[in-house]
Design a protein around this nucleic acid. Structure first.
Lengths: 337, 337
DNA sequence: TTGAAAGCGCTAACAC
DNA sequence: GTGTTAGCGCTTTCAA
């Protein structure tokens, strides 16, 4: 900026005014400064800017690099944050880098808020982080009073899935869960309640799988041996559902004629022509805008010295998107609430 | 730092010495300062640190959020960068945010080098960026003199695939490409050369697909109508290969008995039990360490005022990992060079 | 071993 | 409309 100012024959703060595009410079000097800056290839240093301003206007996002659904969420989060006047800083969780590490890195950058996608830290660890900076988790369920969360309505979603399959005449239904992954507990409980209520109590089964294609494939192979009469499967997510469909077909089952399959997430994969997976939708745009709204709300509240409010745990409505993997659409979309 | 210094009754620079863990403080004051810092929840501001140091020691990584293979690369890149004494800063390319935008954001953070995963910017744009900061592209092919690239040996890989299928008796081989995606051109040309050399000139075909599961599925359905005698497919990547396998099975073809399939990337998906995809491996660890080595080399050279060297375009050896999708392993692994 | 002083690139308050 | 001055949180001389 000094260099630009010297080259343009003006003061350095005037260059600042021009570069920020705020009033306070005549059209002529503005044009001149911009011309000189462009010629010199000048680019403003964002760090220095943040340092001086005393705040970063940065939201940190922790995501799992291997999870394609997080890509969709990042897209929406970036948009929502920009609208709220914030930028985002990304930290990836990978096979060799845990969530705690990723959070540390973002705190070192002085992010003003943290959005954690698919967090698996326990509530106590998150509470400690929330002492430093507002936290909101997306797609994980917590009930802490110290931070917020937003997730889909797992209970209602499971009910919709059970109801959908029951209506289509299925009674031997399998829930293929992902023990230890957030959301699984609620889905498991609701599955038992909903099937019991429908009078299917002893025809259903629960098997342990996981949140990946491989886990779904392995679990269904095993499950079909143990429960050969199974006619329908509710899988933990679309990825495991994809494994279920592929493996079942390899074993000679037709989907949906011999085995109906329902997944969770309504990811882009669900629309693949050879899958056409019935799935419980969670809208990434809605999740993202809720997350940004909550975290920015807390950031602003802190800035104005308000006393911190109690943790808010928002649950967004789900809808069942019916495709052919469950026997096709009778009534195409069933909304929750 | 000021606060910590006051609370500990020492000067602020001394706190800096302690926090950086460099010699210059007595064990007692070191312990005392650390204790006070911990009590106050002090955390060093990375931005201020970079600002003062006059450099960021940051490598910017541009990745595609929807591409799971990039997740593996990020993991390796983070490791390699840390080893070289650098940190990384991530910028995601998504449906609504282009590569140019992502690059801009990183330049604003004053990254000292840029690693672009699967770049699709043209050479001229990249040259302009390379004027500001060293650039290396990963898994895209360029021949610019102004920046570096590292990619797998597409030509050799394609040869290996053709040879592998030919050895197993296939002659009606299809190349299912991804027009416009980097690497496709070389693979297409090599496919034609290698098949011609093997005397299969008029039995092979090339069809336009894409780099996703959906593209592979659509393309194979169409291709099997136009070339019903096809017995083997080389797909642009593992994702499209997965679409090919799934769709072919749905159409009643058995894999590999009726249709042998080979992919590129040897991604984690290739190992799925129901796929067992023969694939041309590109080792993410090797790609990553080469990329970091090249970009850091240029950063250091610049720092020492050396005149910039000419663009280096490194091509890493590939190997064919044989799994059952191509008829199983005769000889399990065939190396290039 | 410790402290004082300067300055990285920028913005904000104020004077001219 | 423009320039002057001060300072964000650090690191880095250099002096005590």
């Amino acid at each position: 900026m000094r260099d630009v100012a010297d080259a343009a024959g003006v003061s350095q703060p005037l260059v600042s005014i021009v570069m920020r595009d705020v009033p306070g410079a005549s059209p002529e000097s503005r044009a001149h400064v911009l011309e000189v800056a462009a010629r010199l290839g000048y680019r403003r240093d964002e760090r220095a800017r943040m340092l001086k301003q005393g705040r970063s206007r940065l939201i940190g996002i922790v995501f799992h690099a291997a999870q394609p659904f997080h890509g969709q969420l990042i897209d929406e989060l970036q948009l929502a944050a920009r609208t709220a006047g914030y930028n985002v800083s990304l930290a990836a969780v990978t096979k060799r880098r845990g969530e705690a590490d990723a959070v540390e890195a973002l705190l070192g950058e002085r992010v003003e808020g943290l959005v954690l996608l698919g967090a698996s830290l326990d509530e106590q660890q998150l509470n400690r982080i929330a002492d430093e900076v507002p936290v909101v988790t997306v797609a994980s369920q917590y009930s802490s009073e110290r931070f917020d969360s937003v997730s889909m309505d797992d209970a209602r979603g499971t009910e919709l899935a059970v109801q959908h399959l029951h209506e289509r005449g299925h009674s031997r239904i399998l829930y293929l869960g992902a023990p230890g992954v957030s959301g699984d507990e609620v889905r498991t409980e609701t599955f038992l309640e909903a099937t019991a209520e429908a009078g299917l109590g002893d025809e259903v089964a629960i098997v342990a799988g996981g949140a990946s294609e491989a886990a779904g494939a392995e679990a269904i192979e095993d499950a079909l041996r143990r429960y050969p009469d199974t006619t329908a499967v509710i899988a933990f997510n679309d990825r495991s559902a994809q494994g279920v469909v592929a493996q079942a077909r390899l074993l000679g089952k037709r989907v949906p004629e011999d085995l109906a399959v329902v997944g969770f997430d309504n990811s882009e994969q669900a629309e693949l022509p050879y899958l056409q997976l019935t799935s419980l939708a969670q809208d990434p745009a809605q999740l993202a805008s809720a997350a940004v709204e909550m975290v920015v709300g807390r950031v602003d509240a802190n800035a104005e010295g308000e006393s911190p409010r109690i943790g808010e745990h928002r649950i967004l409505p789900t809808e069942l998107v019916v495709r052919s993997s469950s026997g096709g659409s009778g009534n195409p979309v069933e909304r929750s609430r």
